[in-house]
């Protein structure tokens, strides 16, 4: 997996999926939806975020709906990873299934908007170059490592089907 590095976009606690992926746009394509990502609380996010940038959250990031368009919108916009104190369960699973790395970092609140970060989801490390700090964190769980290495659940399933591991 290539290194993930970019600027930090910092959000608070309990960021919900309705602000990440507003319901009014769910009927449109994921690409169209992505243009409205964080519209209610950070209207310039979708236009200013750059490939590799890292979203930083507080506690319970991604609470609410099962809508996969939330992590999908972040991925479409080029977000490299999400780092948060904690994640809501469905968002956490959805992001990993889509191949978007998500890492629990108890010290996420020390990161400031615009800090230059790099993230290693396999070894479990977040480096804040701006503040000259390195944080170890839990790597992606073992049982999901093969799926992450394959790029997410879809390529992982494809590989398993082709290997005859899933009966069709």
């Amino acid at each position: 997996m290539t290194a993930i590095a970019g600027r930090a976009w910092v959000f608070g606690d309990n960021i919900d999926t309705d602000v990440i992926a507003p319901g009014a746009y769910l009927k449109f394509s994921p690409e169209e939806m992505a243009r409205h990502c964080f519209e209610a609380i950070a209207p310039d996010f979708a236009t200013k975020v750059e490939v590799g940038d890292i979203v930083v959250g507080g506690r319970n990031f991604g609470m609410g709906s099962s809508r996969e368009q939330a992590p999908q919108a972040l991925k479409i916009l080029g977000v490299g990873a999400v780092v948060a104190v904690s994640f809501a369960r469905i968002f956490y699973r959805n992001a990993l299934n889509l191949g978007l790395p998500v890492l629990f970092l108890p010290q996420a609140e020390e990161i400031a908007a615009g800090d230059h970060l790099s993230v290693d989801p396999v070894a479990g490390a977040v480096v804040n170059a701006t503040q000259d700090r390195t944080y170890p964190c839990d790597p992606i769980p073992d049982h999901l490592m093969a799926m992450i290495a394959d790029g997410g659940l879809m390529p992982h399933l494809k590989k398993r089907i082709e290997a005859g591991l899933i009966k069709q």
Partner: peptide, 29 residues
């Protein structure tokens, strides 16, 4: 495929919500 799938627990079922890719995985396996 919905976060309020938890509702089924009233009937002593274990039901949780998942996103579309994970539901696809369930459809396959």
């Amino acid at each position: 495929g919905d976060s309020h799938s938890t509702t089924a627990g009233a009937f002593a079922c274990y039901m949780a919500g998942y996103g579309a890719t994970e539901m696809t995985g369930i459809m396959v396996t």
